[in-house]
Design a protein around this nucleic acid. Structure first.
Length: 106
DNA sequence: ATCATGGATCGTCATTTGCG
DNA sequence: CGCAAATGACGATCCATGAT
């Protein structure tokens, strides 16, 4: 369970809480940073953009993942229905054959 | 009309997986 | 081994439905 500190981004972030480190957009409007007065905010903005991109990609990955899972489950349910029908048919066939056999030995 | 409840869907974080 | 994509788990929100 090694907590991997989530990215190598977020450079000199002083006393931000762990939550804020992971969620820089949670308390500040997008693009607004603590040290906005200086031009050294460039790496911060860069990290923020990087994070937004990562979140966007993961959001779409999650959607796709759920779509695939739904499809997979539907396939399984179809297969179950087919096998249940086959099973029914085979049971019926076996019953008929047994019947024929019984009449022969009698 | 209002509330409680359960299911569906979503976004996010943490972890796993597979590839270069 | 490092990285990006895939996936599991969790909490938040929305919506439908039944009970009061």
């Amino acid at each position: 369970m090694a907590v991997t500190g989530d990215e190598t981004e977020s450079g000199s972030t002083g006393d931000m809480s762990a939550y804020q480190l992971r969620n820089p957009s949670s308390s500040l409007p997008q693009g607004v940073t603590i040290n906005a007065a200086h031009s050294s905010q460039q790496p911060v903005e860069d990290a923020s953009r990087k994070r937004e991109l990562r979140l966007m990609k993961n959001r779409e990955a999650a959607r796709e993942c759920r779509r695939k899972k739904k499809e997979y489950v539907k396939c399984l349910e179809n297969r179950v229905a087919v096998l249940e029908n086959q099973n029914k048919t085979l049971i019926e066939e076996l019953r008929a054959l047994k019947d024929i056999y019984r009449h022969k030995v009698e």
